[in-house]
Computed example of a mutant assay.
Amino acid sequence: MLTKVCGMRLNTYGMVVGWLGVIWSFLAVILLGTALGFVDEIAEEVAKSNQKMSVSQIRTVLVIAFSVFLALKVINLLSSSLLVMGTVKERHLLLLPWLINSGIALFFTIIYTAAVWVVAIGYSPFLQAIPQLLVSGGLLGLWWYLYYGVYSLFKHLQLSSDQQRPLMQGPPQRSGEHSATTYPNYTKI
Rank of each mutant, 00 (worst) to 15 (best):
Y123N: 15
T87P: 01
N76E: 11
L95S: 00
V39P: 02
S80Q: 06
L94S: 01
S56G: 07
A71H: 10
A43K: 01
T113I: 11
L93W: 06
K52N: 13
A47S: 15
V116E: 02
N50W: 04
V74I: 15
L77A: 01
V74W: 03
D40R: 14
I121G: 03
S79N: 08
V55W: 02
Y112A: 14
K89Q: 14
L106I: 11
L99A: 05
V118K: 14
N76T: 15
S102Q: 10
P97Q: 09
V46L: 06
V84E: 01
I111L: 11
T109W: 04
R59W: 01
Y123P: 00
T87E: 05
G86D: 00
A105T: 14
S56K: 08
L78T: 04
F108G: 15
K52E: 08
K48G: 07
S56M: 04
G103V: 08
S56T: 13
G37P: 05
L93E: 08
A115K: 08
P125H: 03
V88F: 07
V39L: 10
L72C: 11
L83T: 00
G103I: 13
W98K: 01
T87R: 00
I42Q: 06
L82A: 12
M85V: 15
V63H: 00
T87Q: 03
Q57V: 09
G37V: 08
I110H: 06
V74G: 07
F38Q: 15
